[in-house]
């Protein structure tokens, strides 16, 4: 069950979207998220949906992968929707005791819902179509201007690479520890919240110890492979800003322009 988590998963492929320069994709994703908060009417959201839909079609990522990324956050979305529907004041459509639904409430809830769904799908399109190394290289490149003020861009990127690599390993380890503790009679399923939180201690302690052991092994292995920080390091897939990146940038800028103009003019 715990292994089903697909955080930051990459879907191997060879599409145009996969081939885009990670720097372009990261910036575009960030700006897309900002744009989602600029939009505040339905036509604007239609533009945002159309763009995202085009990216999904071009990327050839199966929809069930996208759906899988969305599933774990559905509860959060449902919760936000409920809160918004009942909490926003305005013209009352329906009332029952202290509960009431207003037209404004429905509108805000719909917008928040669409925003969240687009936000999650948008950012998971970034991780689904960019290999982890590309992602971290991109972040490193985008952060490198800040090296002058002492930001360890390379080290941060390397930490991210390793963190992404070891998510499944640590999940497997957690699974193993849970089973081992259950075999010894540990009970994780009953009792109140406090009791259940306490029951996590026998999982977390061995997990931490094993994380440290893995870290030590990995450090040895990296040293044995001549890792010495950023000095003289080259990359197998150096990032190149190609023609398709220019085209993508132009299309994306057009999208931003439409969103902003639409907000300002209408």
């Amino acid at each position: 069950m715990i292994r089903d988590i697909t955080l930051g998963q990459y879907y191997p492929g060879n599409s145009v979207i996969h081939k885009l320069d990670p720097r372009v994709k990261i910036l575009a994703t960030l700006l897309y998220i900002v744009a989602l908060f600029v939009v505040n009417d339905f036509p604007g959201f239609i533009v945002a949906v159309v763009l995202l839909e085009a990216v999904i079609i071009l990327s050839k990522v199966p929809r069930r992968y996208i759906w899988r990324g969305l599933k774990p956050v559905l509860i959060i979305i449902a919760f936000t929707l409920t809160v918004n529907i009942f909490m926003v004041g305005g013209d009352i459509i329906w009332q029952f005791g202290i509960l009431h639904i207003t037209r404004q409430g429905l509108r805000t809830a719909a917008f928040v819902g669409i925003r969240l769904v687009l936000l999650i799908i948008g950012s998971s399109m970034l991780t689904l179509t960019t290999r982890p190394i590309g992602l971290t290289d991109g972040i490193e490149a985008l952060l490198s201007p800040f090296k002058k003020v002492g930001l360890p861009a390379h080290e941060l990127a390397m930490m991210m690479t390793i963190a992404l690599r070891f998510i499944p390993t640590l999940l497997e380890e957690t699974d193993k520890i849970i089973k081992a503790q259950q075999a010894r009679g540990a009970d994780f399923e009953s009792g109140n919240i406090l009791r259940r939180a306490k029951a996590l201690v026998p999982i977390l302690v061995p997990l931490f110890i094993s994380a440290f052991r893995i870290a030590q092994d990995l450090a040895m292995a990296m040293e044995a492979r001549c890792y010495g920080g950023v000095v003289k390091r080259t990359r197998m897939n150096a990032m190149k800003f190609a023609r398709r990146d220019l085209i993508a940038t132009v299309i994306f800028c057009a999208f931003l322009a439409v969103i902003v103009l639409q907000r300002v003019l209408l």
Binding site: R165, M220, G228, N237
Partner: peptide
């Protein structure tokens, strides 16, 4: 515990990259 990268070929490239070899 000795595989650094989340993609097979990127991991194999890790050593040569550290040596500063041409892409």
């Amino acid at each position: 515990n000795q595989i650094v990268s989340a993609i097979v070929e990127d991991d194999v490239a890790f050593g040569p990259e550290n040596l500063g070899i041409d892409p």
